[in-house]
């Protein structure tokens, strides 16, 4: 079928493509290796952080927004005690607290407490949530309710929250 010249040329072409590809692989590979470094860094497990005192929470169960401060690594900078996020804290009982992440699981906007709706409203796409964080409107665009965070009362007066972020847009609550 093929002449010897054609076969030789085909082989040459193959070798040329191989050598050229290999040559280009070095800079591209070195670059991608660095570029994709974040994928190799797994997020450290979240620790409990002291957010506020128990007295700061109204007894009537109205949620209140608190900034969470902790240590933060930002590439080469390490900063101690800086704001990293926020939570809505609400008393559900004398010694029971509920902590909700302020980030809307739909697209990552920050939700507001809406007293008129007796719940939370996301200003971006109008997702609404009940006070306990569940979706209270079947037409809500959010795939899941507000993310609950582990919360502990320590020494009877301190409110500690295990603060972590979750992947937005997913039906399940997956740590981000």
């Amino acid at each position: 079928m093929t002449t010897p010249t054609e076969r030789r040329d085909f082989l040459r072409g193959l070798l040329a493509a191989g050598a050229g590809g290999l040559a280009a692989l070095a800079p591209a590979g070195a670059g991608l290796h660095v570029f994709l470094d974040p994928l190799r860094r797994s997020g450290a497990g979240a620790d409990f952080v002291r957010v506020t005192g128990l007295a700061a929470l109204p007894a009537d169960g109205i949620p209140r927004r608190f900034t969470v401060r902790t240590d933060q690594v930002n590439a080469w900078n390490r900063r101690a005690d800086v704001p990293v996020g926020a939570v809505y804290l609400r008393r559900t009982d004398e010694t029971e607290i509920q902590a909700l992440h302020v980030v809307c699981p739909h697209a990552g906007c920050l939700v507001d407490y809406a007293p008129a709706k007796d719940g939370f409203l996301c200003p971006c796409h109008n997702s609404t949530f009940a006070l306990d964080g569940t979706i209270n409107d079947p037409k809500s665009p959010s795939p899941r309710g507000l993310d609950r965070l582990d919360v502990e009362i320590r020494n009877d007066t301190e409110v500690w929250v295990r603060f972590q972020n979750f992947r937005v847009g997913a039906k399940e609550k997956v740590p981000a």
Partner: peptide, 20 residues
Amino acid sequence: WPEQALRDAVACLAVVVTLL
């Protein structure tokens, strides 16, 4: 293509190996 291309590719590969 392909004769000069092969030479060029080999030369580039040699350059990359030297750089590395």
